[in-house]
Simulated assay, not measured.
Amino acid sequence: MGHLQSKRILVAGGAGFIGSHLCDALIQDGHEVICLDNYYTGSRENVRHLIDHPRFFLVEHDVEAPLEMAVDEIYNLACPASPKHYSRRPIKTLRTNVLGSLTLLELASRNQAKILLASTSEVYGDPEVHPQREGYLGNVNPIGRRACYDEGKRCAETLFFDYHREKGVNIRVVRIFNTYGPRMNHDDGRVISNLIVQALAGGEMTIYGKGKQTRSFCYVDDLIEGMMAMMNGPDLFPGPVNLGNPAETTILELAALIRALTGSASPFVFKSLPEDDPMRRRPDITLARERLNWRPKTGLEEGLRRTIDFFRSEREQEVYGTISG
């Protein structure tokens, strides 16, 4: 459903997995979208279908560098979000979170634009409180291998709230829990993409630890609805607000479901847990339900089917070159 007023919206990290779906939804709503990306983990492929659209503009730019343009709203999704990518260049990850947020907050301040930060459940670290509510301050290792991302996002949140308090910038902060769906990077090291790729290839499916650790997986379309609801929500509600699916599943259950849905006969292989890997993760979304009237609608099995279809189609294109669909 289109809004009455068309806006000029900047999506930083717009060629990424989540960013590209956000660009789709904003275009569909009748807005003009500037998609900004340095292609560190994003890809032109993700937005290729939008390139000829008259209200879509693709700009190659790193958010660390100064930025000047006229915009009404800004979504800051600029940051690699999988451990494999954010720990490969930890200093770059921190710079993107801190300097990138500063660049975009300054732009928002000059334009008197609304700005939303895509923060993360990683701000809670390995939580000692379950499920995680927004008031929980977290259990984060500031010097661990994941800290560049965890503490980077925590610092970004600090900057957003300081710009709000000191400069009156109209901010929104959402904390995103595990999200999955079509256009995930097949080599991003995330558990769903890893397991689907392994199952489709018929090789071993890797499970870290005993597979007893839990995650809560939110389908990307549901997440986008939540982000847009937050951006369009009341100015007096800056957040932070959890966006995720509270249905909790163990990694072992997830792997078994993926194996069944792909029809794979892949065996499970168990490896040691990575450092600071949280054992339990489930959002308390009471606040999102009450303030945004938002809740996820897509069940895990349905979301996985769509995601598997995407990976299967990608695999066929790679194998056969011309086959698609």
Rank of each mutant, 00 (worst) to 15 (best):
R44E: 12
G244Y: 11
A81N: 06
V197H: 02
R95I: 03
C148E: 06
N245Y: 10
K84L: 12
G144P: 06
P131N: 01
P274T: 04
T158V: 05
N178M: 01
I258Q: 04
V173R: 06
K271T: 12
N178P: 00
L117V: 04
V33N: 05
C218R: 06
F56K: 00
T286D: 09
R295P: 00
L10Y: 01
K167Q: 14
D277V: 07
G2C: 02
F237S: 12
Y86E: 05
I51S: 00
D126N: 14
H21D: 02
L292Y: 00
L117A: 03
S6Q: 12
W294D: 11
N38I: 05
E157K: 03
V319D: 13
D235F: 05
P238S: 13
L116M: 15
P267M: 05
M205E: 08
N141W: 04
E73K: 00
P127V: 01
A265H: 12
N141V: 10
P83G: 05
P278S: 09
G244R: 09
E45W: 03
L159W: 06
Y124S: 10
K7F: 00
D37N: 08
L26A: 01
N38P: 07
T93P: 00
F310W: 14
G16Q: 03
P238W: 10
Q198D: 13
L102P: 01
T286N: 03
A113N: 02
N46V: 04
V169W: 11
M230I: 05
D162R: 07
F177Y: 13
Q28E: 10
K92P: 05
M69F: 04
L257E: 06
V11P: 13
R175P: 09
M1H: 06
L67F: 15
G138W: 06
L105H: 12
N232Y: 14
I51L: 14
M231D: 10
I251E: 10
